[in-house]
Nucleic acid binder design. Sequence first.
DNA 1: TCTGGGGTCCTAGGACCC
DNA 2: TCTGGGGTCCTAGGACCC
Length: 447
Amino acid sequence: MEGVRREPSVLHLDLDAFFAAVEQRDKPSLRGRPVVVGGTGGRGVVSTASYEARAFGARSAMSTIEARRLCPAGTAFLGTRFAAYKRTSEVVMALLRELSPLVEPVSIDEAYVDLAAGEHDLSVPGVTALAADLKARIAVATGGVTGSVGIGTSKAVAKIGSELDKPDGLTVVPPGQELAVLHPLPVRALGGVGPATAERLAQIGVKTIGDLHRLSLVDLTSLVGQAHGAGLYRLARADDDRPVVTDREAKSVSAEETFARDLTDPARLAAEIEALATRVGSRLQRSGTSGRTVTLKVRRYDFSTLTRSQTLAHAVDDPRQIAEIAHRLLGAVDRSGGLRLLGVGVSGLSPYAQGDLFAEPSEVVQPVEVVEAAEPPADPAPGPAVVLWYPGQDVVHPELGSGWVWGSGLNRVTVRFEGPRTTPGPVRTLAADDPDLQPADPPDWTP
DNA sequence: TCTGGGGTCCTAGGACCC
DNA sequence: TCTGGGGTCCTAGGACCC
């Protein structure tokens, strides 16, 4: 177990029944009553059920129809208000960043904090007091939303700790006690063990993490695959050295929609593709990325689901181009019987925006050759302007400080500005001809 | 009126290159 | 004449997470 910490310095926070808790905070009449948040249409599913609704059997991912059957009259069924949840989430994440610069949001209602990167007493009483104080501050700052905290020597142990005492829980797993805590729990408690893996394990009599511990690495990998098996083998031994990381670049962007009724009309299908491509393209453009692979997802009337994808020579972020590929891919799938869902996604993302001037750094460094040219051309060549920015180039901005170019396109340049030593600075997308943005060290290839 | 929407990671086969 | 591997890219599907 190299690399596993000796002190309980990984904290996991999970906000309790988060969407429902925000609704109950904002609508006092809902407090103490069953609340179900999610899709309210005929094909909707439950995102979050309040603890009062869980008492009647309502659960996340259940169809809303079924939740209606289970819950009594007087249960509130609400659509999602994502913006409100996002604002509340940001308040909580800001409190976590006061504890440590190393905060890893996992989702809107979950995060890890590396307490070793802050100034803290990492004894068991020390982190227990810290967690109690954090919970109190979250409740005050959010107007009553509670969270469950787990603290341990690794992410896996911290996460399991936060599950043990929900809601409004606090669990510190002391160093050395990891296996005693883990082994009685069902294998489903481990991240990465879902219904399929649990079923396979159950068939050979493996129910608890303790049972899993007795399996050899060879047996485990032959049962669930190389990577997954090796991962579970280590988790059963509380051998988990995954670091807490602040930011990860997105790898794909997608949008999908389940229709109220299955669609067959080609014009309607085409219009849906356009709408989805527009959502994906505008999100790509807002984040200053583009991608080379366009994927179409189709769910048929019988719930059978398939994907078709095409990888292009150039990265795209233009909704019209994305839609064009998606139309072609849809043309090659069987639509008879009707389609329940369509989805459009772009992956293979790079920070370079689309456009003919997108170029590898090696191509852009070419101005160096001009230095060696005996004479500059008499007339500047007509056509597009030179590439002003290349990835990795150091730049300065009077307000944003110094940074480096992360990606550049025809009209845009994405710059990562340097933050304090321990945290990466903000990423900003600017107009390529923004006069405030200057090379930090102008290359002098002009005579 | 069964079964959302946004993601990540892994596997496996075929193409292609060295 | 016969017989190779490894590595990477692409496509499709599946498991899993919140």
